[in-house]
Simulated scan of single mutants.
Amino acid sequence: MKRKPLVIGDLKAELPLIQGGMGVGISLSGLAGAVAAEGGIGMISTAQIGFREPEFDAAPIETNLKCIGKELARAREIAPGGVIGCNIMVATRRYEDYVRAAAKAGADLIVSGAGLPAKLPELVRGFKTKIGPIVSSLKSAAVICKLWDRHYQTAPDLVIIEGPKAGGHLGFKEEELADMEALDYDSEVRRIADHVRQYGEKYGKKIPVIMAGGIYDRRDVAHYLDELGLDGVQAATRFVTTEECDAPDAFKQAYLDVKKEDIVITKSPVGMPGRAILNKFLREVRKRPRPVRRCHQCLEKCSPRELPYCITDALLAAARGDVREALLFCGTNAYRAERIETVHEVVADLMG
């Protein structure tokens, strides 16, 4: 089936496909630009985006803010005219500065999860940047829509529903993730979509609803677009094992080597459950904590002395290829990767 374009206000992507943001350093300009060049929407993760810069250790936030513009510019060189955005976690320290930096640098789209982006409309005022929350429940979608309606007289430009099969931090309780079938999540997806459409009607605009989490092949795409009637999908894990992905080769090889039983739910230092590959690092930190030696100014609510390990250090190890000593986030379907593909091949397979 020929897929309809994804239209977000005056933004138009040829394909109803968003590449999910993956940090630290996994989805930067290389991957985002390649996806945008294929007609999808490429997303740059701003999480510790400046980690390669020499001044990062001394001034992490200021370095990150400068690198947002650099990465967006590089992605634009790869995909002139493509749709490119930023994924910015609400839990990020000085979140407001990150959002303003992305909007000022010309990000077409900003999506935010890991918290409720209550002030996001105010932060992009005066810019053309489109905005959307990442939600996992009807409750969180309802809260955001109500807040934006009441305080800013607006509604989201799009809404991304991140389901229980996603990688990284998850908006679910551990017991829910232990029995995903019992969640009946398709019913929750329908409820969220119906609620969002009510706000679209109120503001006289179409609010695309996008499904994320577990999107790996065209059957997944068909389920959410054709059967559930959503407007698009977001895929992340599938893009890791591509030539263009910004991850190091060792990180990609970890996906190629992992077995289904080695993909586990782990409790992140930030207090949220997350999905990752069970490796030497995870086995060891389960037994004994690793003292945090330096604060990288990553998260707003963080008490280094109380953490079992530093999540930035663990993710930086992944971004630098030290996969035995790293936190390797992944989605449920990472074990299905069999070879390194190109972004063109992945997009063609997903979109048919």
Rank of each mutant, 00 (worst) to 15 (best):
A118M: 07
A118S: 04
A118V: 09
K119T: 03
K119V: 04
K119F: 01
L120N: 00
P121K: 01
E122Q: 05
V124F: 00
R125K: 15
G126I: 06
G126V: 07
G126D: 09
T129E: 05
T129K: 01
I131M: 08
G132C: 08
G132I: 05
P133Y: 02
P133C: 09
I134V: 13
S136D: 06
S136G: 11
S136H: 02
L138G: 04
K139V: 09
A142P: 08
V143L: 10
I144E: 02
C145D: 02
K146V: 00
K146W: 02
R150T: 03
H151F: 10
T154S: 05
V159H: 07
I160V: 15
I161L: 14
I161H: 10
G163I: 14
G163V: 12
P164A: 13
K165A: 13
G167F: 12
H169E: 15
E174I: 14
A178D: 12
D179I: 06
M180S: 01
M180W: 03
E181K: 04
A182N: 04
L183A: 04
Y185H: 02
Y185G: 04
D186M: 01
S187F: 07
E188K: 07
V189I: 13
V189L: 07
R191H: 11
R191A: 14
I192C: 06
D194E: 12
D194W: 00
D194H: 03
V196H: 03
R197G: 13
Q198D: 14
Y199L: 10
G200M: 06
K202V: 12
K202S: 10
G204A: 03
K205V: 11
G213S: 12
Y216P: 13
D217Q: 06
D220F: 11
D220P: 14
